[in-house]
């Protein structure tokens, strides 16, 4: 697992109160991890803070799963 993926997992565990084992690449924030739309907005903000970048709204809309978040961050974090 990449360093980014590990940090993403920790943020999700912390914010959503789920077990690490549930945070699989396929896991959808809302369908699988119990997040509502506000939790998802908060997660995106946490990623922005943690990785010091800004995720535009039209990109954020495409981040619904753990894997999508990791892929976006691996591509955009410098």
């Amino acid at each position: 697992m990449s360093a980014i993926a590990e940090r993403v997992k920790q943020i999700i565990v912390e914010k959503l109160g789920v077990e690490e084992s549930e945070v699989t690449p396929e896991a959808n924030f809302q369908n699988d991890l119990g997040a509502d739309s506000l939790d998802t907005v908060e997660l995106i903000m946490e990623f922005e803070k943690e990785f010091n970048l800004s995720i535009p709204d039209d990109q954020a809309e495409n981040i619904g799963t753990v894997g999508q978040a990791v892929a976006y961050l691996e591509e955009n974090v410098k």
């Binding site: 506000l38 907005v41 908060e42 903000m45 922005e48 803070k49």
Partner: peptide, 9 residues
């Protein structure tokens, strides 16, 4: 402006 979505509620 980076307010938490739970700020207002």
């Amino acid at each position: 402006p980076r307010f938490n979505p739970f700020f207002i509620p």
